[in-house]
Design a binder for these strands. Structure first.
Length: 513
RNA sequence: GGCGCCGUAGCCAAGCGGCUAAGGCAGCGGAUUGCAAAUCCGCCAUCCCCGGUUCGAAUCCGGGCGGCGCCUCCA
């Protein structure tokens, strides 16, 4: 039984989709006006993982991420750069997609765009006007918040508390809390024809339109960053539920935001902030507002994608996560344990870990360990992993179990002395294989260890390989002759240029880094 | 000011009323090794503070202190 934390109820609830066995998920995606930074990867990686886990648990899952390709920020940026808005959006969408691919996020079924759904947006808006939930005003169309019966139920706000300043549209709205469904075009702005004149959609409407079109009027999971709860998701609910007269989504899942700890100041809320004036710490906190929000593709030069993915999954998705290069580096060091085991597995079994037949479904992986001590432990770790994931997708807890599991497998290889070729009988190898396949099965639900990690040693450098072979051979002869001075000199000199030697019963291995 | 989140070892982090408080990084012992590397074993936490509820609290309630998010078309 999977349980999920629902922002709507503020409690964990048993997960039951609208249609048995099928799940629809809508995740609010980026506004494509700038290259994506690491903060943009948090949601996709988490929901990609959630989809993997739900599929693993037997559900058929449809996962949608929208692309906002028309918006004030896009208009501003395209002006600044002197390129058309659609061209800018296209470029930035390509950047976003490339980053998702690098992160192993490849379970997204559709990326609907606002500009490709204008007819639906206009129809939706018109319908809201006809039903009395929205009104036109000088070419703009506003949602009449006062007409929404339970407005504020997601963010727990009262109508009085959301009366903003209203900005330059104040006099056109009935209430300051009303929000735009359609905005009339200013001269020179991209626009679409509508019953209210040329204009473009407001921010929230596209999500109501596209989620309804692709997933139905009531779907299962709506996701996004915590910062979207108000006003974005609140307004989506108001639009969709007023139009359809039924709940928009069953479960509202919100992920914590990436923060830049190097910029977090000591300042508190907005009052303090206002008092402090234009302090540098104004930029503190969320990485999207931070100077440290470097393009993600630059970060990919620095860290292995799988390391970044594991870093994002190392804590519970609802918690904020501090960005720090040192932390990502430490996660990378931890992952080495797995990569070394995979090599060890191949050495011992003669098979590639990555080619193992991994159970794809939870039910396929169930097994009776019988009297096998190793598999008994493996089964126990598997249960613990699944228990963590069942509990609101606790990837941090689940990741910890993976370390327990790999340690147990290493211990098996140690105890049974499988590094010694003579000890590798079929029974022992079968147990080890089963254990490794289980590790692959579980890690697969996190989208981890799907393909061999990039080798640090320069691939295809045949010369280096030949030279190493030679050095290792000379050293082996020296060791045999108990000439440890020579043997150690070789190893030490290699260490100085970053090459590590590892002596094993079956021979000597070398690694770079 | 309103709404909400968080505070567990040097750092990160799981834990959602009940066995000895997961795991990672760093550190320290030991096994193994000719010496190493890797691996394994072991050690390292008065759970921010103060009250309360309970047979029993890191976990629930109240109050402090500290940090953060939203209320500004940011994922």
């Amino acid at each position: 039984m999977i349980r999920v934390y629902n922002t709507l109820s503020k409690t964990k609830e048993p997960f039951e989709p609208v249609v048995q066995g099928q799940v629809g998920i809508y995740l609010c995606g980026p506004t494509v006006y700038k290259p994506s930074h690491i903060g943009h990867m948090v949601g996709p990686v988490i929901f990609d993982t959630i989809k993997r886990y739900l599929c693993y648990s037997g559900y058929t899952v449809r996962l949608i991420i929208n692309i906002t390709d028309v918006d004030d920020k896009l208009i501003d940026e395209s002006k600044k750069r002197g390129i058309p808005m659609d061209r800018l959006a296209e470029d930035m969408t390509r950047d976003y997609m490339a980053n998702l691919r690098a992160m192993g996020v490849d379970t997204i079924d559709a990326f609907p765009k606002a500009t490709e759904n204008m007819a639906g947006i206009i129809a939706f808006t018109q319908d809201l006007i006809e039903k009395g939930f929205a009104y036109e005003s000088e070419g703009d169309v506003y949602f009449d918040v006062a007409k929404a019966p339970d407005y504020g139920k997601l963010s727990r706000r009262t109508l009085e508390s959301v009366q903003g300043e209203g900005g330059d549209t104040a006099e056109r709205k009935r209430s300051q809390a009303d929000f735009a469904l359609w905005k009339t075009a200013k001269p020179g702005e991209p626009s679409w024809e509508s019953p209210w004149g040329p204009g473009r959609p407001g921010w929230h409407i596209e999500c109501s339109v596209m989620s309804g079109k692709l997933l139905g009027e009531t779907f299962d999971i709506h996701g996004g960053g915590l910062d979207l709860i108000f006003p974005h998701h609140e307004n989506e609910i108001a639009q969709s539920e007023c139009r359809h007269g039924k709940p928009m989504a069953r479960y509202w899942l919100h992920n914590g935001l990436m923060q830049d700890s190097s910029e977090i100041g000591k300042l508190g809320g907005r009052n303090t902030r206002a008092a402090e004036g234009d302090n540098a710490a104004q930029e503190a906190g969320k990485i999207s507002k931070s100077k440290g929000a470097n393009p993600f593709r630059e970060m990919l030069q620095q860290f292995a994608p799988e390391t970044i993915r594991f870093f994002l999954l190392s804590t519970h998705y609802r918690r904020p996560i501090d960005f720090s290069e040192e932390r990502i580096r430490q996660v990378g060091v931890g992952l080495e344990t797995f990569y070394r085991f995979f090599k060890r597995f191949e050495r011992v079994s003669g098979e590639s870990f990555y080619r193992l037949d991994r159970p794809r479904r939870r039910s396929d992986g169930d097994f009776q360990p019988g009297a096998d001590r190793l598999l008994k432990d493996v089964a126990e770790f598997r249960d613990r992993f699944l228990e963590a994931m069942d509990d609101d997708f606790n990837t941090g807890g689940a990741a910890g179990v993976l370390f327990d599991l790999v340690r147990r497998l290493n211990k098996f290889v140690d105890d049974e002395k499988l590094e010694e070729p003579g000890r590798r009988d079929e029974a022992r190898l079968a147990s080890l294989r089963r254990g490794a396949a289980t590790l692959g099965e579980l890690a697969g639900t996190l989208g981890m260890f799907r393909d061999p990690a990039e080798e640090k040693s320069p691939a295809g450098d045949a010369l280096a390989a030949r030279l190493m072979e030679l050095l290792i051979e000379i050293r082996a002869e020296a060791r045999k002759a108990k000439d440890f001075a020579t043997a150690d000199r070789i190893r030490k000199s290699l260490a100085e240029i970053g090459v590590t030697l590892e002596d094993r019963p079956g021979g000597t291995d070398w690694t770079i880094g």
